[in-house]
Design a protein around this nucleic acid. Structure first.
Length: 676
RNA sequence: GCCGACUUGGCGCAAUUGGUAGCGCACCCGACUUGUAAUCGGGCGGUUGCGGGUUCAAGUCCCGCAGUCGGCUCCA
């Protein structure tokens, strides 16, 4: 993509001049719209005297959105031309593409998709113009009399103002507008849609840079109480080459999908016999996970955290007291009834006791705090646990290791005085980032989730929200990271900061969360004795760095595409003798490395050297040590790295030192130069 | 949970309009082994996710269930 050109044009105020359109101002074909006084306009519109329109290029963010939204219109026209009964939902642009929702009696099939594609190609070739028309609400109701969803949107306009992203595309503007697709030869209106616009000048601008990608169902206006519509997703780009590049990116991403790598590298699986969303880690995955956990544990200890252990199940009482059985019941597994007794007729003779699998660790940590009286001298008290929790996620929501039913939070609960809140949050944030850097992540951004004005959704005093939100914002700003503030996304009891990271191929993942909570201390009546002897209530900070260890494992796996840094690699070094005769010599080197704590193995199988190299390269082993006559004679070994590069004839002692250093430095080793 | 698609030996895939399952890798056995991504030969392995049904005949068609995948909703 090219840098957007700084194109703008001042419209002269010379009296008597012809009205000027965007087409005249911006004859360049790569301009798809213009920005007039901050608003996006169609090029066909007449520019008022005195304004200074700017060009919107097709490969700018706005330009792409316009292109994609226009593609959505072409899709909708194609669908209705083939199936006139299809009712129009909404059709906004999304990341990399667009979708359009339709109300239809029968779900779409892959064959339908092919037919729609052909029809879209025909519409594209026809070079239809998009024509904007301002209408009154009554006119709109008449025009879309047979489109129930559009009528609903017309009714919504003004009633609630700008709401959900998708809907604003239809009726978000100041006035109601309709876009008509006009045949360039006859001038006939072929199709129309309620739409804020703007659009590309002609369907020909689509230039074959699009493709329909999948069919899905989606609830109307995003609520599961509403009927489901059929959604068709597509992708659209300025050129066919851009489209192809995008498709290649998808293939790259698919190759590093953690579910695929997990099976290929023998790291973990989800046996059907155990149940959906419940993972088992295999030996190699176990090593990676253990290294991750051990490193994190060490760092937590250094940072003043106290490790605790708590059970996986508890009597219902605990979650009644925490209120989770009210606020989080649907996320919990059903109870296990204990000690109930019945007579021969099935009548209960002794009441039982319900136990629940824990979906959260906090109440248990709170009980540890509560076990005895606490002094201000103990605060901040940091209780940490890799606590395994169980949540009854909807079956359709499960996804590899990133969305499971049993997972382990690297959880901690920090009990602080109100005065300590800000400093402690600052410490947490610094700690998180430093730790994530240890794992090779480098790009971070923050999101501050705050309350909004919705009534009844939030608890706690206005002062608390004000001061704690300010504290979080202050810390976030001081970090220097990019900060996004989102109103309405806070937990019901307090604000939070979430940390997001960008992986090797640019995808953004939410990892850490830091939440301020005065609610649970209140519910559990937590106290500490302050220096003046008064009993006071601590504030609790919930925080998880990885979020979920399983999920973080998946993120790292995809980030590294399976090629972990040396310290995390299940097998760090594999010895490959050039021929059988050198197996003993190389075995000695491998034994030495093992003695020094390196995960090293000798491949003494009957395979030939070349085959072994292939096998271990595919297994993404970072260091292959090869030895034949030359190496043995010199008391040396030869290195082969993941990218095929070599370093030959390195004396054994030096080789061992290099390997140990790379492990200690947590270095990524892909090529010879990485070894130092 | 909802909508749709998919489900063939450990993995990746084949099986013309329904005519009673093949290949590669992996695995096992034997031989081979001299410098950086596949040595050769032989062998084991599937009542085609599970349960019904239609048919002379079902991996292929129909129904139910489970699981997986793509979305929606939700979310660490």
């Amino acid at each position: 993509m090219t840098e957007p050109l700084e194109q703008s044009a001042a419209v002269s105020e010379s009296a008597g001049g012809e009205p000027t359109t965007g087409f005249e101002l911006f004859p360049d074909r790569s301009v798809v719209a213009m920005r007039v006084d901050g608003e996006l306009w169609d090029l066909a519109r007449e520019v008022p005297a005195g304004s200074e329109p700017e060009a919107v290029l097709i490969d700018s963010a706005d330009g792409l959105a316009i292109l994609r939204h226009s593609a959505a219109h072409v899709l909708a026209q194609a669908v209705q031309s083939i199936n006139p009964e299809a009712k129009l939902g909404i059709g906004p642009p999304v990341t990399d593409g667009f979708y359009y929702d339709f109300g239809v009696a029968e779900p779409f099939t892959p064959d339908d998709l092919k037919a729609f594609t052909k029809e879209m190609e025909r519409i594209q070739r026809a070079g239809q113009r998009f024509r904007r028309r301002v209408v009154t609400e009554d006119e709109a109701r008449t025009l879309f009399a047979s489109e129930p969803f559009k009528l609903e949107l017309i009714g919504l306009k003004g009633a609630v103002g700008e709401s959900e992203d998708g809907e604003s595309v239809e009726v978000g503007g100041a006035e109601l507008t309709v876009y008509e697709n006009v045949d360039p030869k006859s001038g006939d209106v072929i199709w129309k849609d309620l739409c804020r616009g703007p659009h590309v000048p002609s369907t020909r601008v689509l230039a074959n840079g699009w493709a329909l990608t999948r069919i899905a169902a989606a609830y109307w206006r995003g609520s599961e109480k509403n009927p489901q519509l059929q959604r068709i997703y597509g992708t659209a780009w300025p050129t066919k080459d851009d489209l192809r590049a995008y498709q290649e990116r998808l293939e790259e991403a698919a190759k590093r999908d953690h579910r695929r790598l997990g099976a290929e590298l023998d790291l973990f699986s989800f046996p059907d016999e155990i149940g959906s969303g419940l993972a088992v880690f295999h030996p190699k995955g176990g090593i990676i996970r253990q290294e991750m956990e051990q490193h994190a544990l060490r760092r937590h200890r250094e940072a003043g955290y106290n490790y605790v252990y708590t059970p996986h199940i508890t009597k219902a009482d605990l979650f009644w007291q925490s209120n989770h059985l009210v606020t989080y019941k649907e996320g919990m597994f059903p109870p296990i009834r204990m000690d109930e007794e019945r007579d021969e007729f099935g009548e209960i003779t002794k009441l039982g006791q319900d136990y629940y699998l824990k979906p959260m660790n906090c109440p248990m940590h709170i009980l540890i705090y509560k076990e005895r009286a606490r002094s201000y001298r103990e605060l901040p008290l940091r209780l940490q646990e890799n606590g395994t929790v169980y949540r009854n996620e909807l079956s359709g929501a499960l996804h590899g290791l990133t969305r499971v039913r049993g997972f382990t939070q690297d959880d901690a609960h920090l009990f602080v005085t109100p005065e300590q809140l800000e400093t402690e949050v600052a410490k947490v944030l610094e700690f998180v980032i430093s730790m994530l850097r240890d794992f090779g992540l480098t790009e971070f951004e923050l999101e501050l989730s705050m309350k909004d004005d919705e009534k009844g959704k939030w608890i706690g005093s206005e002062e608390f929200w004000q001061s704690s939100t300010d504290a979080l914002r202050h810390v976030a700003l001081a970090s220097g990271l990019k900060l996004t503030e989102v109103a309405g996304e806070a937990a019901f009891y307090g604000p939070k900061i979430d940390l997001k990271t960008r992986d090797a191929i640019g995808r953004v993942w939410q990892l850490s969360t830091v939440q301020v909570d005065p609610n649970l201390p209140e519910r559990f009546e937590l106290e500490f004795t302050d220096s003046d002897g008064a009993k006071k209530r601590p504030i609790m900070i919930h925080r998880a760095l990885f979020g979920s260890i399983e999920r973080f494992f998946a993120i790292l796996l995809e980030h590294y595409a399976g090629a972990f840094p040396l310290w995390l690699s299940p097998v760090q070094v594999v010895g490959i003798p050039v021929a059988d005769e050198y197996a003993d010599y190389l075995g000695g080197v491998i034994d030495r490395l093992r003695g020094e704590g390196v995960r090293a193995e000798l491949d003494a199988s009957d395979d030939r050297m070349q085959k072994k190299i292939r096998t271990h390269t595919k297994a993404k082993v970072p260091v292959q040590l090869i030895a034949g006559e030359e190496d043995r004679a010199a008391g040396a070994v030869s290195f082969r790295f993941r990218d095929g590069s070599q370093r030959n004839g390195v004396p054994v002692a030096e080789a061992a030192a290099l390997i140990r250093a790379a492990i200690a430095d947590r270095r990524q080793v892909l090529t010879a130069d990485d070894l130092g």
